[in-house]
């Protein structure tokens, strides 16, 4: 295991549309200060905003964790439910169960999970109905 340069945790509340994106803005600021290259920074920012919005739109609340080592940036989203019944369907572009509120704000196009996967170098998702969903994303720095 390599030394952790940065560890931060951001609680994200369900349906808190006003603050949605604040964690991602802070993550971007912190990574920029650490000198993460712009190309990686943009991918992390997009994935982090998508995952933060997913917590707000779909989850019962959760925590977004940022971990930085000299080798990689890691983003972990862990929520308290409700869990995704069909992960294959959820990963499909265009599929969305977002509420009207989310859609009226410009979200819910069904691009979130595929877009996270596309931007991350490593992507894994596990989910259990009634328990919650965990998304783990890695972005290589070296």
């Amino acid at each position: 295991m390599s030394a952790t340069l940065l560890h931060a945790e951001y609680p994200v509340e369900s349906e808190d549309y006003t603050r949605a994106g604040e964690a991602s803005a802070d993550i971007k600021r912190k990574l920029k200060q650490l000198g993460v290259p712009a190309s990686v920074l943009r991918r992390v920012s997009v994935a982090s905003y998508e995952v933060e919005l997913n917590l707000v739109i779909h989850s019962d609340g959760g925590v977004l964790t940022l971990e930085v080592t000299p080798e990689a940036v890691r983003l972990i989203s862990a929520d308290r439910g409700p869990g995704i019944p069909d992960l294959d369907l959820a990963m499909r572009e265009g599929w969305s169960t977002a509420s009207e509120t989310a859609r009226s704000l410009g979200f819910g196009a069904g691009m979130g999970l595929p877009n996270m996967k596309r931007n991350a170098d490593d992507f894994s998702i596990t989910s259990e109905v009634g328990k919650g969903t965990t998304i783990d994303m890695g972005f290589r720095l070296a």
Partner: peptide, 13 residues
Amino acid sequence: LTNPHVLRTADML
């Protein structure tokens, strides 16, 4: 759209 999320999106990108 003129809501704050347009700005957030612009910021991330």
